[in-house]
Amino acid sequence: MFYEPRNGHGLPHNPFNAVVTPRPIGWISTRDSAGNDNLAPYSFFNAVAYEPPQVMFASTGIKPDRDGTKDSVSNIRETGVFCVNIVEYAMRDQMNASSASLPKDADEFEHAGLAKAECHQISATRVAEAPANLECKLTQIVQLPGTANFVVFGEVVGVHLRDDCLVDGIFDVTTFSPLARLGYKDYTQVEQTFSLKRPDE
């Protein structure tokens, strides 16, 4: 099968999300200028640079109570900061609950039953029990073609690692089983890992 996205695919559901998988989930926490906390998961998320460490996430939808975007992007525009919370399999239900479309001043932490902790370097709240949290300062927001497609880039200025995830000096993902997004309504978890050496090592 071949199709051009602009002409449609003729399938019951869009296969694009199922092709680019698995995708890590950026659980983005922000705070607006009035002090309201927000939390939302984004599966268009990844690390993009080592030095200095930088990450990105993309927001691709609109909320009716926001100006052409969603709460996360709107709050970041106001404050210039955000926190990425890493999602483990054990928190899948809370992550899913936080994806609900709630009013802009609603607190997804409370809605999902999550404990909060204050960030150290930025004015935002983080998921207290997450395996890791990345405190970020906004570097740029890029608008992509299409309706309400924004990519947010941030420099990581603070890193929290849960103590039980550190094994012999290594952040060991097998201790918490990261959650990843597949296509449609499907997810997966990391349960096994293996190592490969690069040819020039």
Score class of each variant (00 low, 15 high):
2 F>G: 12
2 F>N: 15
4 E>P: 03
7 N>R: 14
15 P>M: 02
17 N>V: 11
17 N>A: 13
19 V>K: 12
19 V>W: 13
21 T>S: 12
24 P>Y: 04
24 P>E: 11
25 I>F: 03
26 G>F: 00
29 S>D: 10
29 S>H: 04
30 T>H: 01
32 D>S: 05
36 N>A: 06
37 D>N: 14
38 N>K: 05
39 L>E: 07
39 L>H: 02
44 F>N: 11
48 V>S: 12
49 A>K: 15
50 Y>S: 13
50 Y>P: 02
53 P>D: 04
54 Q>A: 15
56 M>P: 00
56 M>V: 12
59 S>N: 13
59 S>Y: 00
60 T>A: 09
60 T>Q: 12
61 G>I: 03
62 I>L: 07
63 K>T: 07
63 K>E: 15
63 K>Y: 13
64 P>A: 09
66 R>V: 07
66 R>E: 15
66 R>T: 13
68 G>H: 08
70 K>M: 10
73 V>N: 00
77 R>S: 11
77 R>Q: 15
78 E>I: 06
78 E>F: 05
79 T>I: 10
79 T>G: 06
79 T>P: 05
79 T>K: 08
81 V>Y: 00
82 F>C: 07
83 C>D: 04
87 V>Q: 01
88 E>Y: 01
89 Y>D: 14
94 Q>K: 02
95 M>C: 11
95 M>Q: 03
96 N>P: 04
96 N>H: 12
98 S>Q: 04
99 S>D: 11
101 S>N: 14
102 L>S: 01
103 P>R: 06
110 E>V: 09
112 A>Y: 00
113 G>C: 07
114 L>Y: 02
116 K>G: 11
118 E>H: 05
120 H>V: 10
120 H>M: 10
121 Q>D: 15
121 Q>K: 14
122 I>E: 09
123 S>Q: 14
125 T>G: 06
125 T>F: 01
131 P>D: 09
134 L>S: 03
135 E>K: 05
135 E>D: 05
136 C>I: 02
138 L>W: 05
144 L>A: 10
145 P>G: 08
146 G>L: 06
148 A>L: 07
152 V>Q: 02
152 V>E: 03
157 V>S: 08
158 G>E: 12
158 G>S: 10
159 V>A: 11
161 L>N: 08
163 D>Y: 11
164 D>I: 00
165 C>N: 10
166 L>T: 14
166 L>P: 08
166 L>W: 12
167 V>T: 13
170 I>E: 10
170 I>M: 10
171 F>V: 09
174 T>R: 06
176 F>T: 04
176 F>N: 08
178 P>M: 07
179 L>M: 15
179 L>F: 13
179 L>P: 06
183 G>E: 02
185 K>A: 14
188 T>H: 00
189 Q>D: 10
190 V>H: 02
191 E>A: 05
196 L>M: 14
197 K>G: 07
200 D>S: 09
